[in-house]
Design a protein around this nucleic acid. Structure first.
Lengths: 139, 139
DNA sequence: ATTACAAATGCAACTCAGTTGCAGGTGCAA
DNA sequence: TTGCACCTGCAACTGAGTTGCATTTGTAAT
């Protein structure tokens, strides 16, 4: 649980109790987490606006990355070490479970190149999938 | 402009003036369109709630498909003929322009298969890209 | 054509995610 | 330990999307 403090220091962010709690919650979840999720888990430990701003800071410094769920709700997951400020190396697949609604970051081999119509220049590719996750396929 | 009427008939939807206008607007745009876009273009010709319900009906009957932009806003584009009720054959790439914010549906060859961790079963894959579109790269 | 009913529309009011401004509190470097 | 930038909490707001209900309209059967 000391790792949250190191994460903050390494990314040039001030050490505050709310940031530590948010990072700990994100790292103990195996799926992406939304602001409403955090607001509920933090109960009265943090103001709702502060949670929004905390997530924004963490994203800007490359600690977390944002994923939109199927309904357009923002969810957040910790980045791998390779991510730096604003340059999120997103070499993984976002798996959206149709049953529990959770989003899981899964490793994939590199994306293939596609030939697009002339004039379109690609800066970043995103691959996502819908289906049923491990826990929901048991049971 | 008669094609909107045929689209409605072919998909078992009643012919109403608002639906025709919405379909015409969608087919004349070369990019995906949001409810706020339509609300502005239809001015006082349709109630805002009706536009939401129109888009929902069109989506349910396989006339349009929904795409979320980078901010989580729902945008809609006409489906190709292969789409049927609720079974959207999404064999194309959604290109999000970082300059104008528009989303374009581009054809791509079939998606590759990926080996996921055991237990995850994929129902549908989605490929998207960020970059600069044709119009924005000129200029 | 007329009718009758389901489906579509308009209006008002609502929910909920996310934002902004500002006053007061806190981390941290000097 | 002091100073100041940054963080937090509160209140108020914005804007997308939804729901309930009364009214109107499309369409199929007469």
């Amino acid at each position: 649980m000391e790792s949250a403090i190191r994460v903050l220091r390494d990314h040039g962010l001030r050490k505050t109790s709310i940031r530590i709690k948010v990072i700990d919650l994100l790292s103990s979840a195996n799926h992406a987490v939304s602001q409403p999720d955090l607001e509920q888990q933090l109960e009265s430990e943090a103001d709702r606006v502060t949670i929004y701003r905390t997530l924004k800071s963490l994203e800007e410094k490359g600690v977390v990355h944002k994923i939109l769920d199927m309904a357009g709700l923002s969810k957040y997951a910790l980045c791998k070490d390779e991510c730096t400020d604003h340059q999120h190396k997103d070499e993984h697949l976002h798996f959206h479970c149709q049953v529990c609604g959770n989003i899981f970051c899964l490793n994939i081999p590199g994306l293939p190149d596609y030939n697009l119509p002339a004039g379109y220049s690609i800066k970043q590719m995103h691959l996502s999938a819908e289906g049923v996750c491990v826990s929901c396929s048991k049971g």
